[in-house]
Design a protein around this nucleic acid. Structure first.
Lengths: 129, 129
DNA sequence: CTGTCTATTGATATCTTATATCAAAAAGAA
DNA sequence: TTCTTTTTGATATAAGATATCAATAGACAG
């Protein structure tokens, strides 16, 4: 399956990089249509999936709400504010040892995981005073 | 807000315990309607949420697909088979230290997390030969 | 046991997020 | 340019879950 480099794909990739802070598909779409009103939302979804497949984006599957996308593709964890909904990087040391533990405890193979922490961000903690 | 103990709520709680292996809302509904065909799916959803709120069930928010519910309410992790979709317990030692790490790294407060590991279960690994 | 009050129910509509469909358009190779 | 196949745009559909609202039924007072 040949992979073509369309301008829509470039726009999507660029939008994710520009938004930087883990946008949802909808947020990417909103940015793209600003300058290119003919781009379809389906195309945004398709290109986000395709780019994630190719390893050019990271697809963060959220336990609640819309999935998010990250232009940083190397492994790192994330933390979500339960009040304002923002998602930030959580620069922890690598947790791959956990995978081996889970594999040993369950007998499963090829174990992977991704953690989305939840808490209250400094800004929201300040507002609640 | 008063909390009433309806027979529908009892049926939902009992169904989750009976199914044992982390049923989805739909699976709970299917079991309940067998003996009580008038119970509405909305009622199942509402009672699953209400019972989880009260700490009588555990709501496992899945990164993909339907959420699941656990009659064991104490903390433990889960692992999902990427081939057959089954969800089992992953009895790891407590990972609360991770929360403190994430809090320190990000400045967030009241940090929590839940890990859903993904891998291939022994049964599926066997089938693939 | 009866009546009152209000949480809960059943039925259904609606919402959100995401994917499927399909004719038309465009990328890449010759 | 011409041909082939992927990709697009528009829209329909799907899954999972919540909202709406009149009718029902717990819990409590008496």
């Amino acid at each position: 399956m040949e992979r073509r480099n369309t301008i829509q794909k470039q726009l999507v990739l660029q939008a994710v990089a520009e938004l930087a802070n883990h946008p949802t598909a909808d947020e990417v779409y909103s940015l793209v249509v600003k300058d290119h009103p003919t781009v379809s939302k389906a195309t945004v979804y398709r290109n986000l999936a395709s780019l994630s497949d190719d390893g050019r984006l990271r697809h963060i599957k959220m336990p609640s709400g819309a999935d998010r996308f990250d232009h940083q593709t190397f492994g790192h964890n994330h933390i979500e504010c339960i009040l304002c909904g923002r998602l930030e990087d959580a620069p922890l040391e690598d947790q791959t040892a956990l995978n081996a533990q889970a594999a040993a405890a369950t007998g499963y193979r090829c174990v992977e995981h991704e953690i989305v922490f939840r808490g209250i961000c400094p800004a929201c903690a300040g507002k609640q005073h």
